[in-house]
C-alpha cells in the first residue's frame, strides 16, 4: 500500500473508519433525547418550540478542528501518531433549540437522567463576567455501545439559529475563517449580537405573557 504522506491524509483515512461508529452514536443519542423530551414536547403551547438537530462533523471540518487545537494551527509531521479525530468531543452532536426560556430549564431537567455520567461544559459568554450562552455536555452514549464521545447542547432557539446561519454563511466553505472570531474586534461584535438576541427574546416573552394574561382576564369576565 502507498504510504500516507501527511497528517491530514492519515486523519481523513481515520475519519472514514470512524463513520459507522459515528452514525450509530448519532442515531442512538437522538433517539434517547427524543424519548426523554417527549413529555415536555407534547405539552408545548402553540408558540413554544423544541427543535432537535443532530449532525456528524464533516471530514474536513473535523481535520481542521483538530488542526486549530495546535498552537500555530499546524500539525507536526514528527508527531503523526499522536493525532486522532476520536479525541474530538463533537464528532457527533445533538443540539436542542428551545423557546421560550422557561422551557429550556424543563428540557434540561428532562435530559438529566441521560446526562448523569456526562461532563458539563457550558458554552461560555464572550467576556469572563458574561453568563454562559448555552448548556453543553459531553460523554458517551450508553445505548450506542461505541467508544466515541458525543456532545449535547441545550440552547435558545434564537442563538442556535444565529449559530446555524453564521456557520453556513461564514465558515462552511472556509473553516480556517473561524480564527477570525478569536480576534478582539470580532469578539466585541459577537457579544453585541448575543446580547441583542437575549434582549429580543426577553421582550418577546414578556409581551406573550402580557397577551396571555389579557386573554385570561377576558375569559374570566
Amino acid at each position: 500500500m502507498r504510504e500516507l504522506r501527511t497528517v491530514e491524509d492519515r486523519l481523513r483515512s481515520e475519519y472514514f473508519e470512524l463513520i459507522p461508529s459515528m452514525q450509530r452514536t448519532l442515531v442512538a443519542l437522538e433517539a434517547d433525547v427524543r424519548h426523554h423530551l417527549l413529555p415536555v414536547m407534547i405539552a408545548l403551547d402553540r408558540y413554544e418550540q423544541i427543535r432537535i438537530l443532530s449532525r456528524l462533523k464533516e471530514c474536513e471540518s473535523a481535520v481542521d478542528s483538530l488542526r486549530r487545537r495546535q498552537e500555530g494551527r499546524v500539525f507536526d509531521p514528527e508527531k503523526l501518531e499522536s493525532y486522532s479525530l476520536s479525541s474530538l468531543r463533537d464528532l457527533v452532536a445533538v443540539r436542542v433549540l428551545v423557546f421560550p426560556s422557561y422551557r429550556r430549564e424543563q428540557v434540561h431537567m428532562a435530559l438529566m437522567p441521560l446526562l448523569s455520567d456526562w461532563v458539563s461544559d457550558p458554552v461560555p459568554g464572550i467576556e469572563l463576567d458574561d453568563a454562559p450562552v448555552a448548556r453543553k455536555y459531553y460523554g458517551r452514549c450508553g445505548s450506542a455501545s461505541t467508544t466515541l464521545t458525543a456532545e449535547l447542547q441545550v440552547v435558545s432557539s434564537l442563538v442556535g439559529s444565529y449559530w446555524e446561519v453564521e456557520h453556513s454563511a461564514l465558515y462552511k466553505t472556509s473553516p480556517n475563517l473561524q480564527g477570525v472570531m478569536s480576534s478582539p474586534s470580532m469578539k466585541a461584535r459577537q457579544r453585541a449580537v448575543l446580547l441583542a438576541l437575549s434582549d429580543f427574546e426577553t421582550e418577546f416573552e414578556r409581551l406573550i405573557r402580557e397577551a396571555a394574561e389579557i386573554d385570561a382576564t377576558r375569559a374570566g369576565d
Binding site: Q70, E71, G72, V74, F75, D76, E78, K79
Partner: peptide, 14 residues
C-alpha cells in the same frame, strides 16, 4: 512567543 516551543513544521509554515 509560544506556550510550547514551535516545532520545525510550525516555523516552516509561518
Amino acid at each position: 512567543y509560544f506556550d510550547q516551543p514551535p516545532s520545525p513544521a510550525v516555523v516552516q509554515a509561518f
